[in-house]
Amino acid sequence: MPGELLHRRLIVVTGKGGVGKSTVAAALGVLAARQGRRTVIAEVGRRGDVAATLDPAAGLAPGESAGEDDDRFDERRLPGPWGDRLWHVSVSPEAALREYLRDQLPIGPLAELLRSSRLFTGLAAATPGMRELLAMGKVWELSQPRRRTPGAEPYDLCVMDAPASGHAATILGAPAQFAATARVGPVARQGQQIGATIIDPAQTAIVVVATAEELPVSEALELQGALRRGAAVDVTLGVANGLLADRFSAADRQLLATAGDDPAIVAARGHAERAHDQQRQLARLRREAVAPVVTLPLVPSRRLGPDQIGELADRLESGLRRIGAESGTATRGAA
C-alpha cells in the first residue's frame, strides 16, 4: 500500500526524461525527513540536481559535477527545517566500482591490483550490466540497516533518483540477471541479495513519475509491464507531475475560444486547452495504471528552491493520506 510508502527502506523514483523525477525524489526525501526518518537521496548518474535545488547555498549549478572522481562517496547533509535528517549522495558506477574494490573485496592485495589495473576497470565498465549492477549495489548499500561502508551511519530510508524509464527496468533487473549469469562467487551472491531486496514490496517501493502528456503517460504505462517482466516488481505509486490548475470549465473554454486576441485571452486559452488535454491524459493514466496516482501542481517558476519543494512535499503528503484512506476503506469493504 502506498500509504506506508515512507516506511520502506528503498524508494525508487523513475519516469521519462524531463518529467521532474529529481523534483519528486527531493519532495519525497523532504517529506520522509519531516516525519523523522533519516533519509538519503541517491542520484544515479546525475550531476547533483537535487542538491542544487535543496541546498542552493552550496552553489552547485545543475549539471555541475559533484566530485565523482573522489574515491569516497560524498554523503552531504542538506540543511533545512527537517533538521539533520536529510542527506544527499551522487552515485556513479565508476565510484561504486572503486569503493567496492576498496571496501568489499575479501582479498586485499588483489583488490589493490585490480584497482590499479586500467584494463580491469575498462573491462568492468564495458561488461554489459556491470555498470547497472555497481550503481544499484551502492544504492542498496545505502538502504541497509547495517551499512557495509566502514564507519558509515545507517539511514532509515534511501530515495533513489533513478535513470529514465527506458533504463530503469535494466538497472533494477541487473542484480538478479547478473546473479543468474555469474552463478558463483561474491558478485553472484550479492546480486541475489540485492535482487531479493528489490522484489520485496515490504522493503522497496517503485514510484513512476509522468507529466500528463501522451508520451510520458505511455512510457509510464509501458514501464509497468517492463518492470514486471524485467525485474519482477510492480509499481507502487504513480505521480502525475506539473498539472496546470484546472480552473476553466467547458463553458469557459467555449467563451475564450471566441473572445478575441488580447494576449491575456490567448494565454488563458492556451492554459485552458493544455489543462483540458492534461486531464484527459491523467484519466488515462488512472484508468490503466496498476498503482494509485497522486498529482502535483505545476510550480509557476523555473528555479525551484527549498520552499517550492516543501510545498510539493505537502501536496504529496495529502495525496498519500487520501490514498491510504481510500485503500483502508476498500480493504474493509472487501473484508
Partner: peptide, 24 residues
C-alpha cells in the same frame, strides 16, 4: 600481459564474477 600482473587480475576477476561469465 601476464608478465605485467594482469594474469593475476584475471584470476581475481574470475573469483569475483564466476567462471561462466568469462566463458561467455
Amino acid at each position: 600481459v601476464a608478465r605485467r600482473g594482469t594474469g593475476l587480475a584475471l584470476g581475481a576477476l574470475q573469483r569475483l564474477t564466476g567462471v561462466d561469465l568469462l566463458r561467455d
